[in-house]
Design a protein around this nucleic acid. Structure first.
Length: 123
RNA sequence: CGAGUUGACUAGACAAUCGCUGCUUUAUCGUUGUGCCUUAGGGUAAACAGAUAAAGGGGAGGAAAGUCCGGGCUCCAAUGAGCAGGGUGCCAGGUAACGCCUGGGCGGCGUAAGCCGACGACAAGUGCAGCAGAGAGAAGACCGCCGAUGGCCGCUUUGCGGAACAGGUAAGGCUGAAAGGGUGCGGUAAGAGCGCACCGGAUUACUGGUAACAGUAAUUGCAGGGUAAACUCCACCCGGAGCAAGACCAAAUAGGGUUUCAUGAUUAGUUUGACUAAUAUAAGCGUGGCUCGCGUGGAAACCGGGUAGGUUGCUUGAGCCUUAGAGCGAUUUAAGGCCUAGACGAAUGAUUGUCACUUUUCUUUGAAAAGAUACAAAACCCGGCUUAUGUGUCAGCUCACAUA
RNA sequence: GUCCUCAUAGUUUAACUGGAUAAAACUGCGGCCUCCUAAGCCGCUGCUCCAGGUUCGAGUCCUGGUGGGGACG
């Protein structure tokens, strides 16, 4: 079933959720992104599918406007590609210099990462 | 038409597709909580919360920023006052309040419109001023000037001349950021507010003004300058903390209190076992005692605190718009109309197209390419200040040039 | 979000109550010494975070900004 929705169930909400991902991650990266990935918790009832969390540090991106822009782009890209992904929890982190990129470049980088995740998982 | 100056407005527009988050309405689900009914079993969706879907409608700023001031609101402490500490500082007004704003005064800049100003007091007291310089605060003879007067020397001796001993002198030089009113004339041996004129100052009086202050007159030769973003004095203001304030609900695990039961301990009574009553929350082991260490403590009910988490505070307000009145103005009064973000790992977006805009290139119009805008995003709410910043429009005023 | 602190050579610290060339150690660079290196000796290296203001004079006082660090769930 193809869905483009993105509500509170597909986000990481509490520090506990984040800790679970940080404790045993698989890493993916590109020039400006680092992604941490853990398979979803099957026992927990409130994790029906893949979920996204964002960790955009103020140290890496100074201005609030730029931080918000990056968050929105990542969410948008996740929203449009989530039906291709397996059931995982994702935390997206960011490296310095990302605020220099424009929207198009960020989208391309993210799509490359989604494809890479999909390939590895099928193996 | 050019240059400038002040004030106000603006913060890309439209469409399509896919999303996020509140609100309203409708439909479906839903007895988990609350409510209602009850024959105490439960029932109730034409009860409210809650979930899902659809439709409608709303969704960042002029600075949302810095957190520099002032308030509302909440809690804490309170009988009030003072000290300490901090802040403000020409005058009047505005305001909930302010370090803000308006009007006025004074000073500075500018041809002008206009702009800028921590702008009380150093004659209440204490301090500070390196180096340089003669002298730095009731100042000072280094160079200089004079040497009238007194003394010295010479001569043509009731006088004249010389040197510069006593001494006089703040006009000039020198030092410095700063040297104790300024300019001119008189005066003198040389000078000096020593005298006079004007300017400046001080004191007193009067006039105008609510006041700051301004003006006029008279008197006074004139007076210890700078620094208070040095201590200080004077006048006025300030209790502390902040929505992570505060209020409510409250899981698991741990843990507090009370009661009951169970268990073992001690004592007493009855006594085959055991039971009853009282006491204590320990007993026990290392070790006989003290000390120290080790170690055990079941079940149920109720009460209270409270973590995770949730709800609330949370947006109707010193609110906005229009018109009229008061006021030079800030502002204020009245009437009518309007509701305009409430998120919480944190929404307000992405993509595409057309137009507008900017830049570049070619260029008669115009065409093409690129950019998709600057500064920057709410986090309880207001009033200000400061800082950052794109383009354009409107209005007032000033100066210069040209024409009439 | 709220509150609090700090900023001086490349690094770690000084600099009195505002007073004149901002000091010291280590490091770096150059030179001397040595066959070479080390050690030793000599010399060099500063917009006192930035911009204004007060003052005769500011690292120091005042105002505004920039950057770093910390506390509070």
């Amino acid at each position: 079933m193809v869905t483009y929705k993105f509500n509170r169930e597909s986000r990481l909400l509490t520090p506990g959720h984040f800790q679970r991902v940080f404790s045993k991650p698989t890493r993916y990266g590109s020039h400006h992104f680092t992604l941490l990935i853990t398979p979803s918790d099957k026992n927990s009832s409130d994790a029906p599918n893949n979920r996204l969390g964002l960790a955009i540090a103020k140290k890496r991106v100074k201005l609030a406007v730029q931080r918000n822009r990056i968050k929105r782009l990542v969410r948008e890209s996740f929203r449009l590609n989530q039906h291709n992904l397996p059931d995982i929890d994702i935390v997206v982190m960011v490296k310095s210099g990302i605020d220099q990129l424009d929207n198009n470049e960020i989208n391309q980088q993210l799509e490359k990462i989604w494809r890479k995740i999909n390939q590895r998982h099928k193996k």
